[in-house]
Design a protein around this nucleic acid. Structure first.
Lengths: 183, 183
DNA sequence: ACCTGAACACCGTTCAAGT
DNA sequence: ACCTGAACACCGTTCAAGT
């Protein structure tokens, strides 16, 4: 990648844009981790003055939120025909990867649209499994919390699957109890 | 608290020490959160030059690790006479509070002695409940991951309890399966 | 040998000055 | 009106100089 000691506006044909900034930022994060992402380093990478970035993002928080949101966007919605436990696994496995890269990406505080999509998909799976709205909501929070903790602790896939299995077992047993209570 | 624009060594009778540094640092974290803790601010609060802290802690990481460890140290070991689910709840509830303040305090990467004590207590509860060593270890990882996620998402106590209850249900059902398989 | 504090190499962001 | 880049208010930490 061509870079200069002093950024110059005339050298590169590609103009700055939100997309180009996000692409380069993603590259930085993939290579060196989120903690290595700084406005100054990102600007340097783009061959641009640091302040130029602020024409496209209000501040660093907004930029990181955009990165997190686009990572969450790439989480596919599981095949609705599969058993609900498999669907949940298919949803949470990539969710774990997204959280590992951007810890805030799926937090309840994240107000991005993608976090909402994942939540909607999760709630739909739980409701189709038989949980009512209130319990589906609490169950989703629990599943996401477990997934976030597994990401924070870098659990191996086998260990992640074990805990997820036990949590799904526990949720499933509330379904059986409800079914048994019904005539 | 008396403070001066320029730190002076002669004014206060109390000499610097690891304990005094940790106390003041804890006060800062309690009042303003971990993200507000800086070596410079802490030194200012102690009426001392920033570099003086480095005589007691190799670097900021070591200081934060010491804070996290002492927070984990304050987690009591539950009453061994209580039912195992109650014991686990009594252990993880303060663990959640410790992680909320110091996210790294109980992570598997934390090499402090206190994190080890909590882990030992957790494993003992699970083994007394009937899990073998391998499963107790995986179950502990899952319980701690869930607790860390709940801390990161600032789940309410009711929501934390719901998810923990389901996870414990799931673990308990593996005990029943094992018992049923035995003659 | 010990301690100081200036200095280095970074941050995110504001804002006056220039075009 | 737009953009620049100097400047501000911070970081953690090194290290030469002083006692």
């Amino acid at each position: 990648m061509a870079r200069q000691a002093t950024p110059a506006s005339g050298t590169s044909g590609e103009r700055l844009s939100r997309e180009r900034i996000l692409e380069t930022a993603t590259g930085l994060v993939v290579q060196h981790g989120l903690e290595a992402l700084s406005m100054r380093r990102l600007a340097h990478e783009l061959d641009v003055w640091p302040m130029s970035l602020y024409r496209y993002f209000r501040d660093k928080d907004e930029l990181v939120a955009a990165l997190a949101d686009s990572a969450a966007q790439r989480i596919p919605s599981p095949d609705a025909a599969a058993p609900w436990r498999e669907q949940m696994h298919a949803l949470l496995d990539p969710a774990r990867a997204a959280i590992e890269r951007y810890p805030s990406s799926l937090s309840p505080q994240a107000n991005g649209t993608a976090a909402g999509h994942v939540r909607t998909a999760g709630l739909a799976i739980l409701q189709r499994a038989g949980l009512d709205e209130a319990n589906a909501s609490r169950a989703w929070q629990a599943l996401l919390a477990y997934t976030a903790g597994a990401a924070a602790f870098s659990l191996t896939t086998a260990d992640f699957d074990y805990g997820l299995g036990r949590l799904l077992d526990g949720l499933e047993s509330t379904l059986r109890d409800t079914a048994a209570a019904r005539p």
